[in-house]
Every structure is written in structure tokens, then in C-alpha cells.
Nucleic acid binder design. Structure first.
Lengths: 192, 192
DNA sequence: GTCTATAAGATGATAGAC
DNA sequence: GTCTATCATCTTATAGAC
């Protein structure tokens, strides 16, 4: 028998995978239980309602992203290098079972999510956009990038483009779409 | 009593709305029947399986988009004007009940869709991207736009950005996100 | 074409034994 | 913590009357 946090983590990992491939409304507690190797009633012990699971899913995913972004900052010093590694991380998700960004697919399904889930979702977008905006600002200050308007608007556009490109990549089963779009955007912002 | 095509159209219109707000896996034949004012069994008369309804939904949406794009070409002569009107059309969708582009939300749920639905979905992306690419090519030839690489890559990136911006707009319940991102992208491509 | 009736299975969720 | 058992409800889908 496993302790609480061990099973909880297994459930979250499996649920994340299911949600990324089939969407929040595309998987059930039974699908999840089967994947983890326990009964669906046991899932309810850890997450009373599906919305509780959904909320935990977003928080965990956001925390993982925070770690990834910190690691990128640590390992890459140039804006170009950071952006490239950011895209590479997302590409890995696509390559693995054609998964989508968890929060991108959830945002598409926002109409059926609990208010709490939607609030957590917005935080994820806020954080990713803030990180991108910080990179863009530095890039412009260093004279590496050229773009009009606020870094915030540029970051929102870029992150939206990344999420949209992931969706299209999935539809066409072609992860090169994400990379091509990312490269194009960065080239378009390269200072002349 | 209504003739076949009349009810069929009512069903499709209601299903489109439900799908745009709740996603394909977020509405049932009963929800749909209630909205149309008939019984769910009657829906099955027009669309034996849900995937048949889904396929018809995409084809109809794509045809409507084709009409919209032709109309835009007819009424606007400049690339900037056409792009602006294209975005305005999508913004209207967002303003109305915070709806999402039908094919954007379906592409996000692609993992649960029938192969036929996925094929129709790709056609929608192909057509929108082809239209955008044609506009971008003309814009560059006229010296109004400046961008590197093929119009196809630029168009794919822009359309992905538009879909992504719609998703974010929905999550934040703020349709200005779409417009700001669209304006930013166009400004970024404006020839100096 | 639309209805009632119904099937067969899935779904989120709970009670209570171990 | 996990199980069995069970629930009420919902889901897609079909048969057959009108």
C-alpha cells in the first residue's frame, strides 16, 4: 500500500497525460483509475470532485513550468537561447504522444470549467507571459530585438501564437509547425 | 412540422453554438435537443451518430468562412483592410457569448475526434492559411509588408496566433486581447 | 419527421467494510 | 488508503408507433 502523496502524485501524472491528449471532458475517473492501477473510488479519496483534481492539475503544471523557466534562465544567458529552449521544451510535449500544453487545452475548454480552475488557468498565462515579457524587454534593451509597443503586448501575442501553433501542430500531427512558427516570429523581431 | 433541411439547419446552428461555448465533448444530444425544441431521437434522424453531426458542423463552418473571405476580398482592396476585417469577424464571435472559433476548439479536442472530423478540420486550417498567405504575398509584392521566409510559414504563424489569441481572450473574458495581438503582428510586419 | 420508450453502458460520486 | 457495492443521472443510440 502506498502513502498518500505517492498515489496522489501518480494520479496527477496520469491525469495530466490524459488531459493533454483527450482534454478535461475527454477522460473519466475510470480511465484514470485504470491507468494508475487502482479503483475510481480511490481517486475520490484524493480528489473528492473532478474539479478538485482539475485545480490540482493546473497548479502542479504551473509549478513545473516555473521550475523550467528558472532553469532556462540559469542555463541560457541570451534571449535567443532562452526562447529556443522554451520552444524545445514545448516541442518535447508534442513529440510525446502528440500531447498539448495542459493549460492551452484547458483554456479552450474554459466554458465547462469551475471558476477556481479558470482562475488558476489565468495565473498560468500571466506567469508565462510575464516571463516572456521580461525576456523581450531585455532583448530590446540589448539591441538584439526590435518591436513596437509594450513587451506585455508582444509577450501575450507570442505566447498566444505558441499555444495556437501547438494546437495546429497537433491537428496536423506535425510538431515542426511549432518550431517553424517560433523561428519565424523570432526572425521577425530580430533587430536589423 | 418542418421539412428536413429546415430542422437540420436549426440543429446545426444550435450545435455550432454549443460546441463553440462548451466544446465537442461538453455538450450532449439532449442539450442540443432542448435548445432546438425537439427530442434527442429526432436529432439522430438527421445525424445518426455524433461524429456525423460533428463532420457536418465543420463543413458548414468552413463554407461560411469561405463566403466571409470572398466577401472581405470583394469589399476591401488593401491587405491591411482585409486583415482588419478578418479580425473584426472573429472578434464578433468572441463578443457573442464568449464563443471560440469552432475549428480552434475542435482542434484542441482533436484527440477524441473521428478521423473524418480531423480531416475536415485540417481542410479548414489549410483554407484559412492559404487565404492569409495570398494576402501576405500581395502585401509584400506591393511593398506594404516586410517579412522573411515564405508567405505560407508567415500565414501559418499568423493564423495560429489568431487562434491562440482567441483562446486567451476567452480565458480572460477580454476580446481586446485578440485585437491587440492582431494589431501588434500587423505592425511588426509593416514595411519600414 | 417527430414522437415515446427503452436499451446498454458510462459518469461523477458516496457508504461502509477491511 | 483502498476496496466492493451501489447510486442517480447522463450518454449515445435504436425500435417502432403516429
Amino acid at each position: 500500500m502506498m502513502n498518500q502523496s505517492e498515489t496522489r502524485e501518480k494520479v496527477l501524472a496520469a491525469a495530466e497525460r490524459l488531459c493533454q491528449t483527450r482534454g478535461y471532458n475527454g477522460f473519466s475517473f475510470r480511465d484514470l483509475a485504470e491507468l494508475v492501477g487502482i479503483r475510481s473510488a480511490s481517486i475520490h479519496y484524493h480528489f473528492p470532485a473532478k474539479a478538485d483534481l482539475g485545480k490540482a492539475l493546473i497548479i502542479r503544471y504551473r509549478q513545473k513550468m516555473e521550475t523550467i523557466l528558472l532553469e532556462i534562465d540559469r542555463r541560457e544567458s541570451t534571449v535567443a537561447g532562452r526562447f529556443k529552449r522554451f520552444i524545445a521544451t514545448l516541442r518535447e510535449i508534442l513529440k510525446d504522444e502528440n500531447r498539448m500544453c495542459l493549460c492551452g487545452i484547458l483554456a479552450a475548454e474554459a466554458g465547462t470549467l469551475s471558476p477556481e480552475m479558470k482562475a488558476e488557468l489565468r495565473r498560468f498565462f500571466d506567469e508565462c507571459e510575464a516571463w516572456l515579457a521580461a525576456q523581450l524587454l531585455v532583448g530590446r534593451q540589448r539591441g538584439e530585438l526590435a518591436f513596437a509597443g509594450s513587451p506585455t503586448t508582444a509577450a501575450r501575442t507570442m505566447f498566444g501564437a505558441v499555444e495556437g501553433a501547438m494546437i495546429a501542430s497537433r491537428a496536423f500531427n506535425d510538431d515542426s509547425r511549432l518550431v517553424e512558427s517560433a523561428n519565424w516570429m523570432f526572425a521577425q523581431m530580430a533587430a536589423t
